[in-house]
Design a protein around this nucleic acid. Sequence first.
DNA 1: ATAGCCTTGAGA
DNA 2: TCTCAAGGCTAT
Length: 471
Amino acid sequence: MTPLFPEDAGSVSAAGVLLQGAQPPINYTRDPDPGWRAGRPACLKELCPVCGDKVSGYHYGLLTCESCKGFFKRTVQNNKQYVCAEKQECTVDRGQRKRCPSCRFHKCLHVGMRLEAVRADRKRGGRNKFGPMYKRDRALKQQREALIHHGGFRLDSGPPLGPSTHHMHLTFTNGFHPLPMAQPPPLCSLLPFPPLAGPQYQCSSLSNWTVKSQHSNDGSAARIHSFSPQAPRMPQLVMEFLHCEPDELQLQSKIAARILQEEPGAPSTFSLMCVMADQTLFSIVEWARTSVFFKQLKVDDQMKLLHSCWSELLLLDTVCRNVLQGREGSLLLVTGQEVELSYVASHAGLTLAGLVQRGQELVEKLLILKVDRQEIACIKFLVLFNPDVKQLEDHQFVESVHEQAEAALLEYTLCTSAHLLGRFAHLLLCLSEIRSLSTHAEDYLYCKHLSGGVPCNNLLIEMLHAKRSCA
DNA sequence: ATAGCCTTGAGA
DNA sequence: TCTCAAGGCTAT
């Protein structure tokens, strides 16, 4: 599922091969999806990711229609508690959006509408902190449109002469100006910050989130939750985790810029994939470095944790991108490009195709569970603060953060899907599948590295080696 | 309660 | 001054 793996031995480059043949496996065109797997709209002409109605502008974090904007506002402002009468699998489209507010609100959260954008003080007018994000999103969409319409984005494949000669030509010729980027520094230099002095984050397992039982109108037992005013509908810690999340659009721009910096003309598929994985790793390290709790750790412990979980985080990143924004039947890469899964299945080597298949199954599981951004933010902390990592100086702290993250996730799931008992356990099961799959993927990559030709001088290889030398 | 239209006001 | 994403109003 991750884009980082080179071709199977004896077979051709997965992504390179994917790019051959009649239909281009990578494209920028995306169906507006009325289902849970909402595509990102390219402009106002596109459809609301919640219900498929006409988009009226950016509302609470993304382009939505007027009615979903109003619905989201009413729900958050009035602290409404909905309960789905079915199994929380109701269709939310233009015709049926009024039928189940519970599923509609879940879908709002799932596609990325931001609770924080609803103003607690109800002040009108002006701009909020999302302004720059909307601007970047608009710019990115314009960039893409220009690339498509002016033929500036070209994808073609080299002659079928074997793995090492397959090339993917990614050429941006119009309206795209890469940011200057330095050669990637090693991990240790990315973690130069000493542990935070001054006030530390509380490590208590209590939040100001309360849960009490109450009876609903129909007489059935229901859980009613009260929320803190700063963190409507979610535990404080989940809010905290959410604030640590990186800016996806900035990451996408950076990686696209790096790809342009690669050998002009014909970068190999493999080096492109390495750039994607490598740059994603940089963003992961940056995320961790600036995240709550992690920045309190000593650099040695930070290194140990990252060395232990980098591949899990990389896999999680790709899986979650596909859960939240992906389109059925294709693999959404960090750059916003898509690869047809059928093409992977038929053209990649057995090992790689198997890994991608397992990743896809994980995506399906998480789609069924309707995992949202809040839960993903918690899961990332569960992965990062792994108490099983050996020789940690502050093992107790790591364990405590892990427990808190787990408790926060449990509280959140109890609130948003109280009637779906076992959902929390299912999320944890997905977490162990992430661990298992990432181990296999890492082994695969390491074998490829040993059998030759994985470009050195990148964070990816550094991580791979660091972990092996620890093991 | 919903959803289309109106008003507001900080920042470009 | 203009823009546009907030909140508000109101017919349905």
